[in-house]
Nucleic acid binder design. Structure first.
Lengths: 112, 112
DNA sequence: ACTTTGTGGGATATATATGATACAAGAAAA
DNA sequence: TTTTCTTGTATCATATATATCCCACAAAGT
């Protein structure tokens, strides 16, 4: 049975994956690596590398990370979702912290 | 049959994937999302999200990109493997480009 | 105390990724 | 032109990801 290409994947996500595949291809060609060469260094088949470069959303993170590693771009991956730069997350965290300071009714240890 | 954890994946790549999973978990908690909530928004099962956050290298790029999309961090992905910042690739490209400028013997359009 | 909630792990069934191979189209070089 | 190399595509077999259930445990709230 032929299944559709997974319409649940957000368009932006799919586009980002395609873009990454194209960039990996560019980086590979710049290094004068054939797909066969690079695939063997990644310990994957040439077809799998082809799917990665063509933006197939189904390829695993292992394949993706291996490609960046072979290209010497693995550090780029650590620029993603850096907690210190997650402005939205930090904002919501602050919002959530002191809903209201519960005046501990019984305890009066802190009176002054 | 129980299969080993894929020793072919470079250590750095595996570590990067683990780190990304941990970061996604942090970002999720900052947004007060339960795994079930976030998984449903990603259109994946809770278990798949669990594998992503625990650094399973086998999860697909679709799951990874969906997670970043739900968290509003999808733009981070486009910072990876940017051709303009690929210093190594640019260097090798320059090395390879002008092996020798073939002096077009016959044409003399450019004389001055 | 109880209840709810969040998370992890197992088992099974299904969908899909992956590998191996072969073949062909296209590009580049001789 | 030929030859070689690179890449795309197709098929088949196998491995694995994924969904869906279940249960267990821990933490936090009532």
């Amino acid at each position: 049975m032929i299944q559709e290409k997974d319409s649940s994947l957000p368009l932006q996500a799919r586009q980002a994956i395609s873009e990454l595949g194209a960039r990996i291809r560019i980086a590979r060609k710049r290094r004068s690596l054939t797909m066969a060469d690079m695939a063997s260094r990644m310990f994957v088949s040439r077809k799998t590398l082809s799917r990665l470069e063509n933006g197939d959303p189904g390829v695993s993170l292992a394949v993706f990370a291996s490609a960046l590693w072979v290209l010497g771009l693995e550090k780029d991956l650590l620029e993603v979702a850096v907690p210190e730069r997650d402005t939205v997350g930090i904002f919501r965290e602050r919002q959530r912290l002191p809903k209201r300071v519960r005046a501990s009714a019984s305890r009066e240890d802190l009176d002054f």
